[in-house]
Design a protein around this nucleic acid. Sequence first.
DNA 1: ATATAAATTTAGGCAAGCCTAAAAAATACA
DNA 2: TGTATTTTTTAGGCTTGCCTAAATTTATAT
Lengths: 222, 222
Amino acid sequence: MPTHSEENYIKAIWKLSQGENPVVTTNSIAASVNTKAASVSDMLRKLSEKKLIRYEKYQGVELTASGRKTALSIVRKHRLWEVFLVEKLNYGWDEVHEIAEQLEHIVSDNLVDRLDLFLGHPKVDPHGDPIPDKNGRISDPNGVLLSSIAAGQTVTMTGVTEHSTAFLRYLDNHSIGLGCKMQIEEINSFDFSMNVRIKGRKAITITQAAAKNILVKPERSR
Amino acid sequence: MPTHSEENYIKAIWKLSQGENPVVTTNSIAASVNTKAASVSDMLRKLSEKKLIRYEKYQGVELTASGRKTALSIVRKHRLWEVFLVEKLNYGWDEVHEIAEQLEHIVSDNLVDRLDLFLGHPKVDPHGDPIPDKNGRISDPNGVLLSSIAAGQTVTMTGVTEHSTAFLRYLDNHSIGLGCKMQIEEINSFDFSMNVRIKGRKAITITQAAAKNILVKPERSR
DNA sequence: ATATAAATTTAGGCAAGCCTAAAAAATACA
DNA sequence: TGTATTTTTTAGGCTTGCCTAAATTTATAT
């Protein structure tokens, strides 16, 4: 049974190993779990002894199969609890992270199963992130960056790649959320901001900085 | 902010201080939190420094107002989560204690408020124990021991004073639960076991040992 | 290639919470 | 009352997870 703290490291390592160019270094882990590099070195040794990671001094870190399983179980719990908080307790998607960080450490496989059932076996969390199944299988994030879409296209928003309160509030303030169907009317060649029309609303401008953190699914191309 | 462990001690002290003849000693606390007396002494010193208890060496322990508030907040969370587990996730009343012991340490006042609302402001938990309000006010346990009821009376079950899985399963097996309206038909003078008829069922026998752990509310006397 | 900078690890220490063994205080009892 | 027993506390130690400072390794830049 990993400790609370070990779970946080494992989850951090998993997260850092996701995406395009993974940077799983002692320093990046330290930043993720809010501690110092020296503490990370300590912990890496311990996790390595427990066979949760493969670790050679100075050579970087990788989860073992067992470590990955642990990570995905935590991610599953985190995301299911986020669904609970938003769907059942009416939290905003920008308010749930901290609480889910606590709830993800509750130990009871049975509880997770029942929660999953209670929530209707959701496939994604309130930010559009896929929820791993009980065997640790997880689907790919559904969508491409809005910033990569050409003018004229119509897309549906499926997720975000940034979970900060500030960013999520920004989207709320522009009434942009998961499932929004939007047409890219124009891309300003000056700053690459996008003029976007959300079905039946007046057009809005989305900065490139924001568009780089929005995942969308293009309309079936014609 | 009390630690996880401090919260467990505070809750144990509160529990031990409830009821007829409270026995809040170093040893009884040690038994409650599954540790040794020496560890309790350590912790009592610490809790005393934090003004959560009044403590004189060898002279016993008492919660301060602040300590009591802390205790009741934990009890509130524990009992609300138990309601959630039973009402929403369909757990049996004998299965929820362990999980609630974990959930009670989740820190978020707002979460508790929303949970309370989501559950419809329940007054009691699945065992009939009163749920403290957000200000730490708690009502008295509702009922008297079934073992104190005279033959001929009709009563409604309102709670239990023992939460072991074994006892709760025993009640389940006899289809005895909160809200059962039962008539005491006879008390056997030999072993004080009770012949009880639950509305519209065949009579059953309840041993005195069991009756001492069942709380009931007598019918409005006539 | 080598010096400097950056990243990482080791060494040594600290607080929390637990332990066992021993000492001290309180209680029981003869 | 004085001794034996029980309860509680203290002393000393252990592990976890963190820290700072120093040493070591790797990367960078001239």
